[in-house]
Write a protein that binds this DNA or RNA. Sequence first.
RNA 1: AGGCGCUUAGCUCAGUCGGUAGAGCACUUCCUUCACACGGAAGGGGUCAGCGGUUCGAGUCCGCUAGCGCCUACCA
Length: 891
Amino acid sequence: MTKRPELGKNFEPASFEMRWYKAQEDAGFFRPEAAAKDAKPFTIVIPPPNVTGRLHVGHALGRTLEDVLCRWRRMQGRAVLWVPGVDHAGIATQMVVERDLKERTGKSRHDLGREAFLALCREWAGARRGDILNQIRRLGSSCDFSRVYYTLDEPRSKAVRHAFTTLYHEGLAYRAERMVNWCPSCATVLSDLEVNHVESSGHLYSIAYPLDGTEGELVVATTRPETMLGDTALAVHPDDERYAGLAGKRVKLPLTGRSIPVIADSFVDREFGTGAVKVTPAHDPNDFEAAKRNSLESIAVIGFDGKMTPAAGAAYAGLDRFEARKKVLRDLEAEGLRRGEKSHVIPLARCQRCDTIVEPLVSLQWFVKVAPLAEKAVAATDAGETRFVPDLWKKTYDEWMRNIRDWCVSRQLWWGHEIPAWYCPDGHVTVPKPGEGDPDACAACGAGKLMRDPDVLDTWFSSWLAPLSVFGWPEKTPDFERFYPTSVLVTAFDILFFWVARMIMAGSFFDGRAPFADVVLHGLVRDEKGQKMSKTKGNVVDPLEMCDEFGADAVRFTLAVLSGTGRDLPFGKTRVAGYRAFATKVWNAARFALQMLEDGAAAPPDALDFASLGTVDRWILARLSEATAKVSVALEAFRFDEAANALYQFFWSDFCDGYVEMVKPVLRGSDVPEKEKEKTRGVLKLVLLDSLALLHPFMPFVSCEIREALNGDGLGLAMQPFPEPRIGWRDDAAVEAVATMRAVVTRIRNLRAENGLAQTELLAIGLELPDGPLSKEMRRHVPLLTHLARLKGVEISSKVVIAGAFRDVVAGLGLVVDLPKKEISSEDTEKLRREIEKLEVEAEKMRARLSDSSFLARAPAAVVEKTRQQLEELSERHKRLSGNLVETKGA
RNA sequence: AGGCGCUUAGCUCAGUCGGUAGAGCACUUCCUUCACACGGAAGGGGUCAGCGGUUCGAGUCCGCUAGCGCCUACCA
């Protein structure tokens, strides 16, 4: 038998959190095998953090919500499998390793060679992987670490190859020369999603192109003068009268002397600039298309290194593209061809990774034709196979799917999945069939000397397969059979397109089933003031440091409470400190309960006969049941904030401030029969244990530590049943009685405070209410009222006469308080007057409503009735409060 | 340029079926009484962005205006 822990006076989460994590992981609780054999699975695949990184608050949020779901479902008896993983992060990792290599040895990856560099990456990633997984553990995440996946390991490589070769042979993966987003700094192509569009201030320059053969010039406006060196035409709108007759003529391209045609094409916007536009097919997507339509030549004047090519002319070749811009402008100035400039806002495309301005370049790359996949994905989501939470994201998803463009999947990197494509000396492409090995000869010509494509695949090409590949797909493994499709995906909305949409495409296409039933999209974590966290602002909060300072339980609870309705969440130290106070409260309430339970036996839960319990006991059980129901309903709807708040409210207000204070006189009273005490101790223990179980998904550590002190078996709460609402515990009469008592006590305390009465000054009061169940309850609880409100006498009847006493209406009953000081100060009189005035205004509104025939005719009877009652209560209260004033005057 | 969202207490945010507004933090006063000062008790504080409409009744539904945020996009 394990020794029960003592709950120390100070709450120190660090002293037990990791002990509990290890105990539960070692016990195998986090594996689905811990559940009953026929248990229904509940599955989540973790969005794999980058191997380069350290866990940030965004991860902490996602992992917290996932863990709440997993722990909750596990307690409900489901076979929970939460698969952890790590992403190899192509560009990010390669950049970090390259930088490190440069710093240590001064060498570049090219100096080292591909194989040696990859070995370095593997070593580096391998060393980091464990750290990330331990950071996930630190948060309390109950993942099955026997099933860790890494997006670049053997099973995942198989899946990637299977997916790519399948797409290729279905005609959905193809190689083509297209205009792509090129990052000159990363020296790779990027997908459209990896480019950020940032509005920046720039200039719109006007340049004159002299007509060839005749007098005159054509002025065009451009934001990128350096590309003019690659112009192969000028374009005007066919219906533009200003330029009528110019189409078909030629102009002299300044600085080069080349003669280029003027064409008419309706893609030109007549309103913009001068209405005439230069056409640079090699460096602008629009112009690229226009060139195809008009059979124009394409001249690349900017290279993959971001520098001007020889085709730009000897004067410019080798210059950086932005240097070239300046020189072109100077040279045009010198030739007298500049026609002014104005400032202009340009949406600049920047590399998501390094912020370099992306260059549109024509290049031969691999693409995936995603439209057919998108169609399947939308069909799946339309059919409700996958639901979005909150569902407004469905619109965004649909919109993106409708306008989807082909996905460029090749990357000119070394770190990643190699593309399974081979080329023969004649340039034929050979891609093996799914399941086949590497080819020996060209599929087209049989040539033997094949060269593998040197490029790797976009990292997201492995990520989008995650829900399939983590279970060993395309193999029909037992895990795949049992756990695919998964239950829930939790992630931030910023990767809806990158990842979520693509996973749904992959699942629907490759397997025929969408990969998850629900997608929970949470907001982005910001700092306490709602500002974006950034290193430059210095407002980045490290969740692991927060766990060390306040405990993982507090961090988790805070994130859950803030997760709200999918909006951004303002997170920071003071918030976490606030919820650590809640953990402390739980801790101290447990210490109190333990003290009480030491005094004698507690009735075991199954021996508690609800009907035989006192009102206060029945009240707390009814409230517990209500709270339990709220938590369950909220969790079913993924409203983590509502669930957490319901627990917070119940535990602090009802249990600590209410129940505990009300049972103290019972448990400590010398005249209370032991039998009654035993029952109340039983209820106290039961409510605390149930609260801990309800709390466990949110605060797994402190809940276990306390339960162990109460009921030590060394096992904690992970496998304990999750409480369910009890219909038999519903007790409206008890709820009303206690609410009334608490309202009365509050009003008396309030009067005491307003009149500056000391605690030692005992008051005589009267409660006016008709005979009935409520008055019986009040009579029964006179000792309790006396204790809570510091009274010396309580008279209960339909009419209480105490000369000069203060009269009010509280919770529907008349309250008479014999205040020792009969004169009300002028300040208090003023306050009373204001209160009475407010009542008059309110009452007047109600009278007006009740005399409105259309209200009486059209409003539901219940609403009318309720209004009548309210008016009655208001009038009664008005009468009594006014009476206090009259008596003062008379005195 | 399109699409989506937001505007409620000093701050950060909830608000279900339309029935007359809540929480946390902060603030004020009192209290170290035997679970807890990371606490207790009692308070103060809101024209629900503005205008109009539907309705007996609007924070809630509809339209417009203003401000803010996000996403998507090949206007040089």
